[in-house]
Design a protein around this nucleic acid. Structure first.
Lengths: 334, 334
DNA sequence: CTGTTAGCGCTTTCAA
DNA sequence: TTGAAAGCGCTAACAG
């Protein structure tokens, strides 16, 4: 099987420098303890031959790739992008690279996608709101080292980072109730989404202990388009305030409402969730819950680093999003 | 060197199934032409042993990883995120994964970063506005297969996708001139950025053939913070319209101006560049140049696919951004 | 200090 | 049709 890749191999460098491959390997990895002149010679031969070590072969020999996967439901969502950006930056500091995958690519086969990408690297940071608990549990074993985002689960032995959607959405509802709103409508996220379920649970709770408040739900999604699409239904719902699944939806909704001549917040209040970088720049600026995505990405790497180096990862954390009151919410119209 | 990874190997599966590794390999890759019953047996043994082929070993034997790198100056910029999202989606359809790197991680050593990540995969899609032409030329050879974004260059034999910043910024300037603005100020991008240079050249050109128009320049950057930071200088510049390096800067500037009590567009017009998804949602909505980032990502993959399969890639393309007039520009105040 | 050698786990030619 | 064996390029025991 001759395959001239064009790149020089360690054996060629060794031959040209009159030493053994082991010596070249040592020199290239700064583990060489012999005479400086020979190290110098090896280095210069390597340069002459434009030798560049095969990361692949090295990985195989070492049994590790120094790469991890980051799997999210939607790479186009700024919330996940922020996590990716900080995760990648943190991992890079330790010589790790990140491989990305958008599970929307294969909505049907998330487990397959994750397993496939896992085989290419050393570990995975998984953000899979739509995967069922059962699937997740059965998959977890083969995925380790694994860090979970937003899917804390007793049955899975993997560090997890999560966001308290439940209490977060209640803060939002409370804020609206305080403003006098008595009829709210929640635009739901993707069907089957765990994080959507937490929001719904939180809202149910809230409604239970707030007798005067009614909370309707209408199906939505996770994108601006979804928000835009439900604008008319939201206007016609009779509610005076709308809680969107996330900021993207809220922004689309805001736009749709304005197009329909609904004034925000005079006629209707609107809230988001995430506090993506642009939430503060909308018209009006969006009242939302601030989730520290950069922090999540960085923390995910800390856990992961501990895992891959055989240490004990720091404890799991649950982030409590912070209510960020801006201009899109106001007193209920009478 | 015993290293029990825990995962079954092809040899173990072969032994358990009473066949040779070669047979297992053939079965796993659907290249097996023998008796169906033995294929069945191999498959079931593989499942029992939870065998999952080592992508690493396979890559080494095959001489390819089915992964490409995507290197950008700033992973936190929505423009690059849009490209990443579509690139990743397109590549995934052909069984390729993408490895990301943010060159802001190592501002000093972009060439090193790129070389390092290139060694981990089969090819690289490079977006390196700040690298010098000389560096790029000397690097290109060792990077191939290579697709360049925004760095068309005669001396480099690599497909390139670019954006006509030069004429784009002129469209913007013309739009402002048509509105009666005679004194513009351009907030420059990062120092040494090629795409910034193109904008500056375009503006110089424009000024040359528009005698009545004066265009100042002030140093800026590429982020919202940079835009925010120059707000006061922009207000005091005496100009009636500001062209920001990109949308991020424009959004920060918009915010800063408003904080300073400057009305946009009544007192001053502001423009961006990129048309990121949120440009339409700012207050006022941002007049900008629309760059088809998703298209760029998808096209980059098309070129790359051709390259890695030894075909001739489609011709280079230069995208002409489309002027998107929205609310942040208006008639010059008198 | 340096080289020999045996892997890492898979693919593929070649021969049976 | 199937298997033996030789790589892919690198690392790390173990000798010397």
């Amino acid at each position: 099987m001759k395959r001239r890749t064009g790149a020089a191999t360690i054996a060629e460098v060794a031959a040209a420098a009159g030493v053994s491959p082991a010596t070249v390997s040592r020199v290239m990895n700064d583990r060489f303890l012999g005479d400086a002149s020979i190290a110098e010679r090896v280095r210069s031969v390597a340069i002459d031959l434009a030798y560049s070590p095969s990361h692949l072969a090295r990985s195989l020999a070492l049994g590790q790739t120094s790469a991890i996967a980051f799997v999210v439901p939607d790479l186009a969502n700024p919330a996940f992008q922020a996590m990716l950006s900080s995760l990648s930056k943190a991992a890079a500091k330790d010589g790790y690279r990140v491989l990305v995958a958008d599970s929307a690519e294969s909505p049907s086969d998330e487990p397959l996608l994750v397993s496939e990408i896992r085989r290419r690297c050393d570990a995975v940071v998984l953000c899979a709101p739509r995967m069922s608990d059962a699937e997740l549990v059965s998959l977890a074993g083969s995925l380790r080292p694994l860090v979970l985002i937003n899917r804390a689960n007793d049955q899975i032995d993997a560090p997890s980072l999560s966001i308290d959607y439940r209490s977060g959405i209640q803060d939002l509802a409370q804020h609206l109730a305080d403003l006098g709103h008595r009829h709210l409508v929640f635009i739901e996220g993707p069907e089957g989404s765990a994080s959507n379920r937490h929001r719904v649970d939180g809202l149910d709770d809230f409604q239970r202990r707030s007798p005067g408040v009614r909370i309707d739900r209408i199906p939505g999604g996770a994108t601006s388009e979804d928000g835009l699409a439900v604008a008319a239904r939201v206007r016609d719902s009779g509610a005076t305030a709308a809680l969107a699944f996330n900021d993207l939806v809220a922004i689309g909704l805001l736009n749709g409402l304005i197009n329909l001549g609904v004034r925000v917040p005079e006629d209707m209040s609107v809230t988001g969730f995430d506090d993506i970088p642009f939430a503060r720049y909308t018209t009006p600026p969006l009242t939302t819950l601030s989730v520290p995505h950069e922090e999540l990405g960085a923390q995910a790497w800390h856990r992961m680093r501990a895992l891959v180096s055989g240490e004990k990862p720091e404890p799991n954390v649950v982030f409590h999003p912070r209510l960020e009151v801006r201009g899109s919410t106001g007193p209920a119209p009478r």
